[in-house]
């Protein structure tokens, strides 16, 4: 090895180390600045009250409307996406298992849909809303976010379901099960942990996205009270409070961002923990 080659190798290795630690450092900086700014301005009042009169000029109140609104929206959308998504993922891996071409086309379509930016879903949801004569509401928000998280949920369930060995399926057939029994009774049980991870991942995506709900969910200072009423969401409350010129209101945006980040961190922690726990029901080969 010549000297020049040695220097080249050292140089690139140094660059690689720098790049890796750059990513870790950026993550640390982001988490630090969100926590540092947020903890200063978070209070019990913020978490337990809805905006009072003059809230947006710095008077009292909190963001309970946005917290509950976001949770309701994300729960609704995740539930709906689960009802549509799980059958699709199961259908791919049980019914279509012998049709590799069809499976790969559908997976490809799902990947395409996954890549579509959420603002496009927002715009599409808005035009659907106008078409059906709906107002901005929790329902419209749920439907839009469902479309947005559906490909994420199906693809991550699919990743797990396609690892279920074919032998398990053959054994079930030989005992006289039909296809839908294999799908809903055996495949789901075998992949519980993966399915939970997929659901929580989609929940996190749904609760954090602002562009899809901007058009469709509206905004309100009241608590969510019905599917056809507008609903406040955390990402939008951060966005609106941040664009205010009043420093107190901006501080509340930092606190709201901390709340949203904490919810997402907790959800992702849960998905790791639960994933380990349900290994027991799994048949090992």
């Amino acid at each position: 090895m010549t000297r020049a080659q040695k220097i080249e190798e050292r140089f690139f290795k140094l660059l690689m180390i720098l790049a890796t630690y750059f990513i870790l450092a950026i993550l640390a900086v982001i988490i630090y600045s969100i926590f540092e700014k947020g903890i200063k301005s978070i209070s019990w009042e913020m978490l337990t009250q809805v905006p009072q009169g003059g809230y947006y000029y710095g008077k009292g109140g909190g963001i309970l409307n946005a917290i509950l609104g976001s949770l309701a929206l994300a729960f609704g959308a995740t539930a709906l996406a689960f009802i549509i998504g799980l059958p699709v993922a199961l259908y791919l891996n049980v019914f279509l298992i012998r049709h590799k071409k069809v499976i790969s086309i559908i997976r490809f379509l799902l990947d395409l849909v996954w890549g579509i930016p959420s603002i496009v879903y927002g715009a599409f949801g808005f035009s659907l809303m106008i078409f059906f004569g709906l107002q901005t509401s929790l329902l419209a928000g749920i439907l839009t976010v469902t479309l947005f998280i559906l490909p994420i949920m199906i693809r991550s369930m699919d990743e797990i379901l396609c690892t279920v060995p074919i032998g398990l399926q053959e054994a079930a057939y030989s005992l006289g099960s039909n296809k839908s029994e294999i799908a809903f009774k055996i495949f789901t049980r075998q992949s519980v942990s993966g399915i939970i991870t997929a659901v929580l991942l989609s929940f996190g995506r749904g609760i954090g996205d602002a562009a899809a709900v901007l058009f469709t969910a509206g905004y309100t200072d009241h608590l969510p009270n019905g599917l056809l009423e507008p609903v406040a969401t955390l990402p939008l409350s951060i966005f609106f409070q941040l664009s205010s010129p009043v420093p107190e209101v901006q501080n509340r945006a930092y606190a709201s961002a901390l709340v949203l980040t904490l919810i997402i961190l907790i959800v992702s922690l849960f998905s790791r923990g639960l994933g380990k726990r349900y290994h027991k029901t799994k048949i090992n080969f």
Binding site: T20, I23, L24, I26, L27, V29, I30, I31, S33, I34, K37, G204, I207, G208, D209, A210, A211, P235, I238, F239, L242, A253, Y254, A257, L260, T261, I264, L265, S268, R272
Partner: peptide, 24 residues
Amino acid sequence: IMHPAIDILAGIPSVVYGLWGILV
């Protein structure tokens, strides 16, 4: 160690990234 770090980066909502951009 890297995988959870990547997961957290991927999970942070875009509004929070925007806020961080304004702050830093």
